[in-house]
């Protein structure tokens, strides 16, 4: 290099360093774990994203007389609650959430296999990637976050024809549909889905986001609510459960 040099503090600011929380993620999680000796190891295993430890903890709790279905809400969801709280507060990052979600889903499957009756879901959501678009990492994140927050997800996959989305909505009767797209050229399928839903008399929130999708575009069709971040999906679903209609959702999530 030439002899040029700078004092970076005069030309840039590392706001992430400046704003980083003093508490470590593990310390923050420790403050949030439940006290119950049987439940705490399960919540810890979820936080750590350890599938085997999660199932082992559940087995011990069941052996001690806990109801497997009740454990979904009382242990797995509690552990996931710790994870989502820390993620929302910026203390942990997305990969931690994804690994926790993997452990949570294994835990739910185990609980179901040990029970006679099926658990009650918070609500059903249909997820898809726009027709013509095969980029599905955004949809995978959305669907994992929704499942981790206790919603029942019908994942239609990528490059989903409009007809197939409409059929799935008619069959599954979800509380919300999500659509993701990377490309501006494929996001127009969202408008077609919107029109076909309205034609069928179905008026449910249609959360759209990803890649080149923006709020201006999503605002052009009636059912569209723009999701800027994948983490908006569970927040939007919770808002619907709390009674928010389309107008309220747009008010809350349309930030630009």
């Amino acid at each position: 290099m030439t002899s040029l040099d700078v004092d970076p503090s005069e030309i840039l600011e590392r706001y992430n360093v400046k704003m980083e929380k003093a508490m470590t993620p593990d310390d923050a999680a420790a403050e949030l774990y439940p006290k119950d000796d049987l439940i705490r190891p399960i919540a810890e295993a979820i936080y750590e994203g350890e599938e085997d430890d999660t199932v082992e903890g559940l087995q011990k709790a069941i052996d001690a007389g806990k109801d497997p279905i009740a454990l979904i809400d009382d242990a797995l969801m509690v552990g996931m609650g710790v994870v989502t709280k820390l993620y929302d507060e910026g203390i942990i990052f997305l990969p931690n959430v994804m690994m926790s979600a993997d452990a949570m889903l294994d835990g739910i499957d185990f609980c179901k296999s040990q029970a006679k009756e099926a658990p009650v879901s918070k609500g059903k959501i249909v997820c898809h990637v726009a027709e013509g678009d095969v980029h599905d990492i955004g949809k995978s994140i959305v669907s994992a976050l929704l499942r981790a927050n206790g919603f029942d997800v019908v994942d239609l996959g990528r490059d989903v024809p409009v007809d197939e989305v409409i059929e799935a909505v008619k069959k599954e009767k979800p509380m919300m549909v999500t659509g993701t797209a990377l490309m501006t050229t494929t996001m127009y399928a969202f408008k077609a889905v919107n029109d076909r839903l309205l034609e069928a008399g179905i008026k449910i929130p249609y959360q759209c986001g990803g890649g080149a999708v923006n709020q201006d575009f999503v605002s052009t069709y009636e059912l569209g609510v723009y999701g800027e971040e994948a983490a908006d999906a569970p927040k939007m679903a919770e808002a619907i459960l709390a009674g928010a209609d389309l107008g309220k959702l747009k008010e809350q999530f349309h930030q630009h």
């Binding site: 030439t2 040029l4 040099d5 700078v6 970076p8 030309i11 840039l12 590392r14």
Partner: peptide, 15 residues
Amino acid sequence: SKNLRDMMVLSDKYR
């Protein structure tokens, strides 16, 4: 050119 190159680099090297 090397001065300009290094100014561009130093703009973002520590960002």
